[in-house]
């Protein structure tokens, strides 16, 4: 048992322990941890509140990046954001969700994504759904 590598020891933990460990992390950090191994990819953190915005998904600080106020989020960042949220929700297998918040500048071209997220919120019986289609400077 002792000559197993640390990753094997960590990975042999029961799913609920791995979920519990991930639940102490931010969304971004939990995703990074899930890259560690095949097994971890499908481990879902116990997170009752999901919050997707410029910072939690792309780790962009709005003020630092868009300080002059008139710049738009790049097409590339928008595409990363919607794909990232989609991926996260696709592999989300929690039982219940208290709140889902998406705060990002999304337009008509993203209706397909937004519809999917709303459907997800309904399926998860989410109590609070918060969609803001602009990037607020506070985020």
């Amino acid at each position: 048992m002792n000559d197993l590598k640390p990753i094997d020891r960590l990975t042999e933990m029961p799913d609920d322990i791995l979920s519990f460990i991930l639940s102490f992390l931010s969304i971004r950090d939990s995703v990074k941890a899930r890259i560690l191994s095949r097994r971890w990819r499908y481990i879902c953190p116990f997170m009752l509140n999901l919050d997707f915005d410029l910072h939690t998904v792309l780790r962009i600080n709005y003020k630092a990046r868009y300080s002059n106020g008139d710049s738009d989020i790049s097409w590339e960042d928008k595409s990363k954001f919607v794909t990232g949220v989609d991926q996260f929700l696709e592999l989300y297998n929690g039982q219940k969700l208290l709140s889902l918040r998406v705060c990002f500048c999304l337009g008509n071209e993203h209706t397909g994504y937004v519809d999917r997220w709303i459907r997800f919120a309904i399926i998860m019986k989410t109590e609070k759904l918060d969609l803001e289609f602009s990037v607020s400077p506070e985020s």
């Binding site: 990074k32 890259i35 998904v57």
Partner: peptide, 25 residues
């Protein structure tokens, strides 16, 4: 850094097996 901490050298298989998350990282 997470990989170095937990895995040491077993990097390559993991890189390719988890391409799905690359957007995040």
């Amino acid at each position: 850094h997470i990989r170095i901490q937990f895995l040491g050298y077993q990097l390559f298989e993991i890189l390719t097996s988890n391409f799905i998350w690359n957007i995040w990282c």
